[in-house]
Write a protein that binds this DNA or RNA. Structure first.
Length: 229
DNA sequence: CTGTGGATTTGCT
DNA sequence: GCAAATCCACAGG
């Protein structure tokens, strides 16, 4: 009898949902970003599964884009830090910020085109108690405190640049994957991006309308919405 | 080689 | 509302 393949100590069938195809990520970041809402980010390490539903993202455009996106890390071309963004689609770009935190993106498009999507908030789904513990939160803390914010998300899942930068999230053997279940396509709110100094008006932030785990000011809810396409 | 500042979070005023 | 915490990538000389 052939034994089912494992990922980091778990049978693959134990992971929630189904793996998202690489083809999905081989599109422009503006296209990929809203469609990531409702999908699952799944981490498997040492037999431990942590997963959250993606409820808030931002698109960052590569230097080839028109108009250009000066807020993107890839804006001035490839560097040792952002090299993953210039590789193929479906890979994790994890960078450190303010010397304290990490943020996670997924590369889009294809080799040479550095568009990406920043993951800004998750609704914890699997391993909620452990995610809370990773954040130093009490068991009684509200669930929305666990992974709402790009660096809180990384803390909750234990994502770091040394441990996770360059991982393939579209591979069944990867310890970090994007997966999808039968969750209904959510209603999407589109707003400007948060925390940047350039291209502040581009409507490239996408969030699940009204979801409690979305970060940022409530006033941004008032922007135009889209049924996802 | 050095200076600058950031896709953040938290805690205090 | 505001500033501190705390690192290093990278642009400029």
């Amino acid at each position: 009898m052939e034994q089912e393949a494992e990922v980091s100590g778990r049978r693959r069938s134990e992971l929630p949902g189904r793996l998202v195809s690489r083809r999905f990520f081989e599109q422009s970041p503006e296209t990929v970003a809203p469609q990531l809402l409702g999908k699952l980010l799944v981490s498997v390490e040492a037999g431990r599964i942590l997963a959250g539903r993606i409820v808030e993202v931002e698109a960052y455009l590569g230097p080839h884009s028109d108009p250009p996106d000066p807020a993107a890390h890839s804006h001035r071309g490839p560097t040792p830090r952002n090299m993953v963004l210039f590789g193929p689609a479906g890979y994790a770009y994890v960078y450190s910020i303010y010397g304290l935190y990490y943020c996670m993106n997924i590369s889009c498009e294809r080799e040479g085109l550095a568009g990406c999507v920043l993951l800004r908030a998750l609704e914890p789904v699997v391993g909620v108690a452990e995610m809370a513990r990773n954040r130093g939160l009490d068991e009684s803390a509200p669930v929305r405190m666990i992974a709402s914010g790009p660096s809180r998300l990384c803390l909750a899942l234990g994502l770091t640049r040394p441990g996770h930068n360059g991982l393939d999230v579209a591979s069944a053997g990867s310890s970090l994957q994007v997966r999808e279940d039968d969750f209904a396509a959510p209603e999407v709110v589109v707003t400007p991006r948060i925390g940047i100094k350039h291209a502040v008006d581009l409507p490239l932030r996408f969030a699940v309308r009204g979801h409690p785990c979305v970060s940022g000011p409530k006033k941004l809810e008032r922007w135009a919405s889209n049924p996802s396409t």
